[in-house]
């Protein structure tokens, strides 16, 4: 039990650091040096938080991306900036701002289909895959996954994953996969941060994941973020749609993903 307390103490310590950290940037800002632009990026129609959307500042040729909760934050010297918000499959948004104080900029992006007349804004910066110090990572959006021809028309994200380099299926039709030679149990599969122990359904011919409720799938074949651990070979991070996400309070989500075969069921959290 001693260890347990030790860990709890550590967590508390982190919280304290958190508070300290909080004080620090504020004081820096008070010094008038830098201001922060932060906010959430969402799909305009559905309110879905967009994971990995790009925020690019033209003037200083730098940028950032949203985290898994659609949040971004970037600190800059005061001045005039042009910010471009982009996301694959969505129409980019450009904002010209004058930074004099901390700014909260929540951006809603529209898919090309949602937009009536097409406005094309080209980013000048190279793509994320060149810029990020992150390798052996593949992100797939659900649109890509949905297009892959599937057995009996049943789209399956695990089958899509098996098409990526370095990923082998363990046997035909199986929901097990091997990443860079690791065993199928060496993959950490997270569905909205909850560990999934068995991704197979119907003797493994279909995976349990319901593609209609999935927003984003990222496979880390190596270079697993330090925030995740417990498995040797890979991290498969699956994020579900938030549904109506205007609530800022704590919310409870119960993912019913005991998937009914060829039939609708309980899928969205607001139905569960």
């Amino acid at each position: 039990m001693k260890k347990l307390f030790c860990i709890i103490a550590l967590i508390t310590a982190f919280n304290l650091t958190g508070t300290l950290v909080m004080a620090y940037p504020d004081s820096e800002e008070a010094g008038g040096k830098r201001f922060t632009i932060s906010g959430n990026i969402k799909d305009k129609l559905t309110g879905e938080e967009l994971i990995g959307a790009t925020i690019y500042i033209k003037e200083i040729k730098t940028g950032t991306t949203t985290n898994v909760y659609g949040f971004y934050s970037i600190s800059l010297n005061p001045g005039k900036y042009t910010i471009t918000y982009t996301y694959i499959g969505y129409t980019a948004v450009e904002k010209a701002i004058e930074l004099k104080e901390n700014l909260r900029l929540d951006i809603d992006l529209q898919t090309r289909e949602q937009l009536l007349k097409e406005v094309v804004i080209k980013g000048e910066r190279p793509d994320e895959n060149i810029r990020k110090p992150e390798m052996s990572v593949v992100r797939m959006d659900i649109k890509t996954i949905n297009r892959i021809p599937a057995l009996m028309g049943e789209v399956d994200i695990i089958k899509a994953i098996q098409m990526l380099p370095g990923v082998q299926s363990t046997a035909e039709g199986s929901s097990g996969f091997s990443v860079r030679g690791g065993g199928p149990d060496q993959n950490l599969i997270l569905l909205d941060e909850a560990i999934v122990y068995n991704a197979s359904h119907l003797l493994g011919f279909f995976s349990v994941f319901n593609n209609d409720a999935i927003k984003d799938v990222t496979l880390y074949k190596g270079d697993i973020p330090a925030s995740s651990g417990g498995r040797l070979s890979s991290l498969l991070d699956i994020r579900m749609k938030d549904g109506n996400h205007n609530l800022k309070q704590a919310y409870h989500r119960r993912a019913c993903y005991k998937r009914p075969h060829f039939f609708p069921g309980c899928r969205q959290k607001n139905l569960c």
């Binding site: 958190g18 508070t19 950290v21 909080m22 940037p25 504020d26 922060t36 932060s38 909760y69 949040f71 934050s73 901390n102 909260r104 569905l191 909205d192 941060e193 909850a194 560990i195 999934v196 122990y197 068995n198 349990v208 800022k248 704590a250 919310y251 409870h252 989500r253 119960r254 993912a255 019913c256 993903y257 005991k258």
Partner: peptide, 14 residues
């Protein structure tokens, strides 16, 4: 398989 997640996001500062 059953999972349940309770999540709370908080901004301590920007």
């Amino acid at each position: 398989n059953q999972t349940g997640t309770i999540r709370w996001n908080h901004l301590f500062s920007q």
